[in-house]
Design a protein around this nucleic acid. Structure first.
Lengths: 207, 207
DNA sequence: GAGATTACTTACAATCTTGTAAGTAGCACG
DNA sequence: CGTGCTACTTACAAGATTGTAAGTAATCTC
């Protein structure tokens, strides 16, 4: 028989441990949703025993709340970051912003997490969110650009933003499948669609 | 003590039993998703013991497959029904069809179920779905309407359909919250948005 | 280096959940 | 009426999952 040699116990700092556990949990959250989170599975992924998780988060519910809170905070931070970056591109500002929102939410995986949370009722979009402010800023800019005969309404501007936001969710859920089903093929189909949408939404010909 | 009187055993036809169980399961599916389905809970809702469910569906997995299959069949049937109805309204055909698709998918609860299934990977939009055919029919009609200088592309038409489809998902997930967050209030906000979207998508000024 | 702190482990309890086995009772058909 | 079929029940097994208790060992402080 081989000599039994225990691998020495790993001891992280509390912050590191929490971070590693939250990282593993967030992956599961994205893949399986809140109901798919299993302490034992996450413990195995991280390489600890499952009571270690309870030690850091108190309970499964505590872990879920922590991972949801962190996911929302990261989403907000990521969104603010990309939306307030200076634009190095030559695209119109609105198109550029829509591009970035898509990147963060769809490719970054945030939209999928949000979809899980919305469906399972673990989270509600806070009413005091920044969307209204963004819409007002966009409307002001639009009136300014139109100049002489401003017939754009605030509601139209807000609707355009809502449309993009809702489409982002749909894209994260079923974008590829929908395009394929509609007969739109090609490797950059997603990019073409996104660009098309941005142009449609930003088109100054519509009121 | 009261005299113990067993309520007589209820015996349904196999079809009725299956239907009742599937109804209760579909409700849970809409509320909690596939992972939230619990045999004991459904048994209680229906008023039977949980092995009765196993008797009819073999296993939990069998039940889930059955309820998913039925949900998809109903969705397709409902969609075909409302899309092929004769229009009694005076709206343009396209607007009317978008209206009906919203009603069936959002108000009928189908979109929510689909969102759960897509997220949990329990279902894939079949590639042979009818969307391509619808898109081709819509494109043919569009070329016909445009007449003289047809510069509409098929892809543009298909993109418009994809946009509506994706928006329907987003609407089911977060429509109300998004509008509120964007500062759009009022009881009929959802209807206004839908009408606005239909007009935007059907607007002949765009190519 | 000694002691305190605490991240972490092992062992176990309690509950929940799916599934099986065997028997019961409602109903159809002769 | 009685016999067969099967929808359905009760009782139980087996495993998964969360949580607790108690102890161990890594690291920090003095």
């Amino acid at each position: 028989m081989t000599t039994k040699k225990k691998t020495p116990r790993v001891r992280r700092s509390a912050d590191d441990a929490r971070r590693e556990i939250l990282d593993a949990t967030e992956t599961k959250l994205r893949e399986l949703g809140p109901n798919g989170i299993r302490l034992q599975q996450i413990a195995e992924d991280v390489g600890v025993s499952h009571p270690a998780i309870l030690h850091h988060f108190g309970s499964r519910e505590g872990l879920i709340q922590a991972v949801v809170r962190r996911a929302i905070e990261r989403l907000e931070a990521d969104l603010i970051a990309v939306l307030s970056e200076q634009s190095p591109s030559d695209k119109p500002l609105g198109v550029e912003l829509i591009d970035r929102a898509f990147d963060v939410l769809v490719k970054g995986g945030h939209a999928r997490v949000l979809a899980w949370l919305l469906l399972s009722g673990q989270w509600n979009i806070p009413a005091e969110s920044r969307m209204r402010n963004i819409a007002e800023a966009a409307y002001a800019r639009r009136l300014e650009l139109e100049g002489d005969a401003p017939h754009a309404t605030f509601e139209d501007t807000a609707f355009r933003m809502v449309l993009v936001a809702l489409t982002i969710f749909g894209e994260a859920l079923a974008g590829d499948a929908m395009r394929e089903s509609a007969g739109i093929t090609g490797k950059d189909a997603a990019e073409r669609f996104r660009a098309w949408l941005a142009e449609l939404v930003m088109d100054p010909r519509d009121r």
